[in-house]
């Protein structure tokens, strides 16, 4: 494509990474809270992967965003700090403050998972983890939603100007967050000798895999509603969404990579492995390779979604003059 995009790969990367980080933060903190037992619940071993991951994609994503700023590229490297001189009703202003707090909270949350963390006794660490988790869940959700609102706030971009975009990004963020946690766990987890702990690991894996299948179901529904309502209207929005349908320049990427490879295939595999336990109360067994493969597919799908949405919004516009 010869066209130059106002928002290119750094913004796409940011939307994806902030989503993964926010999703991992929310999922990790909520599963930790669900595990009970004040700091040492049954899901804590898996929650650890999400907690230690979450700050990095958010920080890297935000960093990418700074690199793409016109002021930064023109040599005014610290000009972006002007963002912190005001609070106004621009979604980007609210988002800047939100993401700053989220990064802070995610760093504190991650720190409570560092064994023998300097400055904290184990007891203090657990207490802090409990408190910060309650902040991490809403902040992660808000960050994920914000990435959708950022794009949705402009009538001049009919493809983005939809209330369901933020919901779609939220679901995708949670799903990719789950995938990132499962991927890290599959890559780095080493079996311990405690059978109790191993049982917990397997059970948490089952819950996460089942949740991801459900999230993908919701995501398919959100995508369906997004596309269907755009198709059922006339004018700008219908014209814009036509890039996703027959003959549209993004149709192949959207349907084959995002919908099929990124949503349907991983969901079917997850359902295949979840069903024996869900319906017949058998043991949940999933090969590590499959777990890795599914997680990678979901992450690729999540990136493709951001790519398709960001590009589609910029190659379409209001019709007429």
């Amino acid at each position: 494509m010869s066209e130059e995009f106002t928002w290119g790969l750094p913004v796409i990367g940011y939307l994806f990474l902030a989503g993964v980080g926010a999703g991992a933060l929310t999922v990790s903190a909520s599963m930790f809270l669900r595990g009970g037992d004040h700091g040492r619940g049954m899901h804590v071993e898996t929650a650890r992967y999400g907690a230690l991951l979450a700050p990095f994609p958010i920080i890297i994503g935000s960093g990418l965003l700074v690199l793409e700023l016109g002021s930064f590229q023109a040599g005014n490297w610290l000009r972006f700090l002007n963002l912190y001189k005001v609070i106004n009703l621009s979604p980007m202003s609210i988002g800047t403050w939100l993401i700053t707090f989220t990064i802070g909270v995610s760093l504190v949350y991650a720190y409570t998972y560092v064994r023998n963390a300097p400055g904290l006794t184990t007891e203090q660490r657990y207490k802090l983890r409990n408190v910060v988790s309650w902040l991490a869940v809403p902040l992660g959700i808000a960050t994920a939603v914000y990435t959708g609102i950022l794009l949705g706030a402009m009538p001049s971009r009919p493809f983005w100007n939809s209330p369901i975009l933020a919901l779609l990004f939220l679901i995708s963020a949670l799903s990719t967050g789950v995938a990132a946690i499962l991927l890290l766990r599959a890559l780095f987890h080493r079996a311990t000798k405690e059978p109790e702990s191993e049982r917990h690991i397997v059970h948490t894996g089952y819950l996460l895999t089942a949740s991801d299948a459900m999230l993908i179901g919701f995501e398919l529904m959100a995508v369906f509603l997004f596309a269907m309502y755009a198709q059922l209207t006339i004018g700008n929005v219908r014209e814009a969404v036509s890039v996703l349908f027959t003959g549209g320049s993004l149709a192949a990427l959207f349907w084959l990579v995002f919908i099929v490879l990124g949503l349907i295939v991983p969901a079917l595999i997850e359902i295949y492995y979840v069903i024996p336990k869900l319906l017949y109360h058998r043991e949940f067994v999933i090969p590590r390779g499959v777990e890795i493969g599914v997680a990678v597919l979901v992450l690729v799908g999540g990136f493709t979604l951001r790519y398709v949405i960001v590009v589609a919004g910029q190659i379409t516009g209001p019709i007429g003059i």
């Binding site: 106002t6 928002w7 700023l69 000009r79 001049s156 971009r157």
Partner: peptide, 8 residues
């Protein structure tokens, strides 16, 4: 800061 939001 050159965020290009206004351009969009």
């Amino acid at each position: 800061i050159g965020c290009k939001y206004c351009i969009q």
